[in-house]
Design a protein around this nucleic acid. Sequence first.
DNA 1: TTTGTTACCCTTTTT
DNA 2: GGGTAACAAA
Length: 687
Amino acid sequence: MSSEPPHLRGLDPAQREAATWAIDGRPPAPAPPLLILAGAGTGKTRTLAHRVAHLLVQGADPGRMLLLTFTRRAAEELIRRVERLCFEVLGAEAGSARESLWAGTFHAVAARLLRRFAERLGLPPGFTILDRSDAADLLDLVREEEGLARIDRRFPKKDTCLAIASLVLASGRSLEEVLRRQFPWCAEWQDELKALFRAYARAKAAQGVLDYDDLLLALERALAEPALAAEIGGLFDHVLVDEYQDTNPLQGRILARLKPDGRGVTVVGDDAQAIYGFRAATVRNILDFPKAFTTPVEILKLERNYRSTQPILEAANAVIGLAREGFPKRLWSARASSSKPRLVALEDDQAQVDHVVRSVLEAREQGLRLADQAVLFRTAHHSAALEVELVRRGIPFVKYGGLKFLEAAHVKDVLAILKLAENPADRVAGMRVLQLLPGIGPGTARRLLEAVAEAGRGLATLAGLRPPTAARLLWGELAALLIELEGATIWAGQIERVRRFYDPLLPDLHDDPAPRLADLDQLAAVAARFSDRRRFLTELALDPPSAASDEAGVPLRDEDCLTLSTIHSAKGLEWKAVYVLNCVDGCIPSDMATGMVEEVEEERRVLYVAMTRAKDRLELLVPERFYTFGQPKFGDRHVRAARSRFLPDRILDRFERVSAHRARGSDPGAADGPRFDLRAALEAVWD
DNA sequence: TTTGTTACCCTTTTT
DNA sequence: GGGTAACAAA
């Protein structure tokens, strides 16, 4: 071939091999199963995008192609790239890959398939989806109804119960085994838990609701039926899965049942970046991939890193090189650089904040936009102090991970009203909505909802019910709203309609209504992007927007702003400069995850993922003292921290070591001498 | 039965 | 600091 077609231009030989392997014919027949082992920064997404584009250019039908990605965001990115590549080759006729491609997370695709086959699967087509806290609330309701609430000894909390149920389903292990291995302190409740989970499943079926696990489980069960499996699997010629190392056994089984012979299946992954074990993801899915299908599997590797400089890679390789299990890949980069990543020792966490802010601003002076920089951390609250400082200094930022905007009470209230209108049987939504009114608590709410369920006439029943006196005033209004929404066919304006009822209630429900109203504005803006209510509710449950609107205000889309992200949410992304907070034992690894060897190993990979996000500059921050809010009522609130165990002395030659102890910068002279902890003293006033 | 108060426990990562 | 559970009061 004299010249490369445009959609393959710029790929190196290994990437090109992966992008085009066994794609023959017009339209191309499904290729035998392909496993692409691709290290961090080796152009994994890019290669996948080129493979998809190549399939399309060769005439594959986009409507029969399934792309499974880890997040909605990743799906968007992939589609964007595919479209651009196709456009270069096909021009205007490239057309509408976006509309016809099946792309999204396992959960989102499962929801879509389940809706399509709902009737034949015995699911109500209008089923609503419970997000995690909805699911926990329902679990609590059920627990009370089952009489498991009043037990003399302490029963596991609802979130714990949900986590246990989830792990059992996702991992395929028995309840007994999950309890023994992960929740030994709950083992005594095994029988009660089993009863609770059964009742929970019954309740979900009765109400026409599915939680996250149900989406996967229902699809997997449907695929166990050979006729349905053939029909559903037959919808797709090509199935491509990104981040395969972070799928769980249930997801693995879905893939295997969708395409038992493996033809047309391509998966991409990196065992060194597996960081979702806590969600029952297992690298076994990658390791066992070659055995999963009836057709022999091809394995290709990508080992050349295009992202980071060689010194950054050497440091990251050193960290992952100390892992228990060997990861045979060794990344290399052609991007030489004289500067090693920096390991910065700091006095305490406040000094860390000061240092990061200063470094970010300095880097900006040198021409790095804020958008080219990111601060990464193990848990969402690690960035709290930094956020305060950024707000104070007027530095714009977006934060990914941690508390979702959807978990804010007022947002959940508005959504619950819409959910109830969509599915009057949804108890969680119903309980929430009715308790908005004064004088209605759990008891009354339940009674009213039971009356609605018994009458079987939908929400119209509400109008005839008699609420307690205190609720009388608003009752008619609420009933009218719900009845109107239940019958509404036009989506536009529904949020505004809800807000006419809800906004006036806000000041009574919360003492800080202003920022909450702003959140609702934002919710309305999101809602406007959807064509109907069902879509809106489904998508929102599966892909919650990650707004931190109560902080600095949502940055304008084009504004140059700094990224703050949990390491988990930073997966697959990259920045020119990356700062990793709290590289100390107790944070990385999290002290919640130091029990079992596998957990610690996963934490090591978390640090590896963080480090390999950096292209040009990388700083690992090691504050030596921590200011903790805390348990010991009196006594020292400063906790000493040790450098992360993943950064032992013998690999420190990979770093430039910096000691950024205060002294200079702050008032010289005042830094020495006896210390008095004014901050703790001021806080102690309220003790 | 609701609402307010207090004591106590736990504190992660996400679809 | 934040959520939850148990208890007290309206």
